[in-house]
Nucleic acid binder design. Structure first.
Length: 156
DNA sequence: GCCAACGTTGGC
DNA sequence: GCCAACGTTGGC
C-alpha cells in the first residue's frame, strides 16, 4: 500500500466537507504529474494526508483513503466549468482522477511550520522548495509521524 | 498583494 | 530542441 499527500484549498473543499459528504471525486487536477500519480499508481485502500493549502493555518487536517480509481474527471466535459477541456473526449479522457473517502479529521491542523520543525520529517516531499504538486507520494514513515502529530492534537 | 518557483506555450 | 514569455501555485 502506498501513502500520499493531497492538497486542497480549504475554501474550495476542506476535510470538513469530505467528512460531511463521506466521499468525493478528487476533481479539477490539471497537472500531468499529479494526474499520472492518480491514474497509474494510486490503489484502492491507499491512505492520504489531507492538506489544506491557502488556509490559515496551512497544513495537514486529516486522513482520507482512496476508494475508487480510474474515474474520468467530469469537469473536463462541462463547458461551463473553468476546468473544461474541449480537447478531451469521453472515449479517451485526458483527466483521470480517483475517488476518496473520509477517514479521520484532526482536532486541529498539523501546520506546515510544525512539519518543518520536526527533524524526522526532513526530506518530506511536501516540504521541498518550490513544490507545487497537489498530489504527491508520501513516505510511509513520514505518514505515520504526521498522523501521530495530528492525533496528538486530540480527536473529534 | 507580493513574489519565488515551476509548468506550459509557442516562436524560431 | 531551445528558451523567453506567460500563467499558476501557494506561502507569507
Amino acid at each position: 500500500m502506498r501513502h500520499w499527500l493531497c492538497k486542497s484549498e480549504e475554501t474550495c473543499y476542506s476535510i470538513a466537507d469530505l467528512e460531511r459528504d463521506g466521499r468525493a471525486g478528487w476533481d479539477s487536477v490539471r497537472n500531468y504529474q499529479a494526474r499520472n500519480f492518480m491514474r497509474d499508481q494510486m490503489k484502492v485502500g491507499d491512505l492520504i494526508l489531507y492538506y489544506h493549502s491557502n488556509a490559515d493555518p496551512t497544513g495537514v487536517a486529516g486522513i482520507a483513503r482512496v476508494s475508487k480509481t480510474g474515474v474520468a474527471d467530469p469537469t473536463q466535459f462541462d463547458p461551463r466549468s473553468e476546468f473544461h477541456d474541449p480537447k478531451s473526449t469521453k472515449d479517451d479522457p485526458t483527466w483521470i482522477m480517483v475517488e476518496v473517502e473520509f477517514v479521520e479529521r484532526f482536532r486541529g491542523v498539523v501546520t506546515l511550520a510544525s512539519l518543518r520543525k520536526e527533524p524526522s520529517l526532513a526530506g518530506m516531499t511536501v516540504l521541498a522548495k518550490g513544490n507545487r504538486l497537489s498530489v504527491m507520494p508520501c513516505d510511509p514513515d513520514h505518514f505515520r509521524i504526521v498522523r501521530a502529530m495530528g492525533r496528538a492534537l486530540g480527536k473529534r
